[in-house]
Amino acid sequence: MDADALLPLVARGDQKAFEELYGLVSGPVYGLVRRVLRDPAQSEEVVQEVLLELWRTAARYDPARGSALSWILTLAHRRAVDRVRSARAASDREQRAAQRAEAPAFDQVAEEVEGSLEREWVRRCLERLTDLQHQAVTLAYYDGYTYREVARRLSVPLGTVKTRMRDGLLRLRDCLGAAA
């Protein structure tokens, strides 16, 4: 069963369905949270929070708004981004992060495990973006910066950042569509 079929069962309290769903989503959820937060212990905490929230609030999922997987990953991504932003606000890590951002660390975590086909394709397609598109998308999504922060970081106007993000995602969509 896929996540769309499992989530309604989970919403009715089916723990077996939750276990199965866990098997499907734990990799992407953990990987994504860890990609944003980098720290393994913090990542585990956030993943716990997210998956418990998923269990508790599964009944809120509305299929009209998108796939179950997308709902779950959005939940996870938002929580990770919240956490990394408050951590940045609390300790002034922004300076160091800015230096690291010069060389996006996208490959670091991904290379710890052998690549899946889809991941390989996404990576390949990401490489086909222009530098600015690539950085705009990854600084926002993988590093949790707001588009305003991304604009500052890349020293480009806000409008340009939004356009590059859009172009980047669309090019990624085209590239992956061609691969499928």
């Binding site: 990987g31 990609r35 991904a110 495990v113 996404v122 993988y142 990624l172």
Partner: peptide, 8 residues
């Protein structure tokens, strides 16, 4: 898909 690419 970006999320999937980060899967671990």
């Amino acid at each position: 898909r970006l999320a999937h690419a980060a899967s671990v």
